[in-house]
Structures are given as structure tokens and as C-alpha cells.
């Protein structure tokens, strides 16, 4: 147990080191998740649109 406590104490500077790493990974993971979800929703919307489009072209051409 002592090793872990000693590691977490960061030589008495835990109050600065851990928030620094915490902020970094909060921003890094947050940006990655937001960007990934943005991409997935765009792909889904595109698939939806392209799925509905060909049906329109399949209609027989009526004599204009």
C-alpha cells in the first residue's frame, strides 16, 4: 500500500500534478469523443440521404 500512497503523493505536489494531468486528459478525451461522434452522425445522415435518393431516380420517365 505504501508504494501507491507514495506514488500518489507526488512528493507533496499531488495537488498540482494530478489536476494538470486530469485537465489534459479531460480535454484530450473530450475532443476525441466529440469529434468521433460528429463523424459517425454525419456518416449516418449521409447514408440516410443517399438511401432515399436512388428511389427517386427509379421512377419511369413520363413523356414530358
Amino acid at each position: 500500500m505504501d508504494d501507491l500512497a507514495q506514488f500518489l503523493a507526488m512528493g507533496g505536489y499531488a495537488a498540482y500534478v494530478w489536476p494538470a494531468f486530469g485537465t489534459t486528459f479531460l480535454v484530450v478525451i473530450g475532443l476525441a469523443v466529440a469529434s468521433w461522434r460528429r463523424l459517425k452522425s454525419a456518416e449516418a445522415r449521409l447514408a440516410l440521404l443517399e438511401h432515399s435518393r436512388p428511389a427517386r431516380r427509379a421512377r419511369p420517365r413520363t413523356a414530358a
Binding site: 469529434s35 468521433w36 460528429r38 463523424l39 454525419a42 456518416e43 445522415r45 449521409l46 440521404l49 443517399e50 435518393r53
Partner: peptide, 17 residues
Amino acid sequence: LWRMKAELIGRRIRALT
């Protein structure tokens, strides 16, 4: 690259709509 792909797909969606 994720964000660029999303942006390009967004433009294609706008063009289609």
C-alpha cells in the same frame, strides 16, 4: 482526419439536400 472527414461529409449532405 476525423474532423476533416466529418466536414467533407457535411458538405456532401448540404449539396445533396
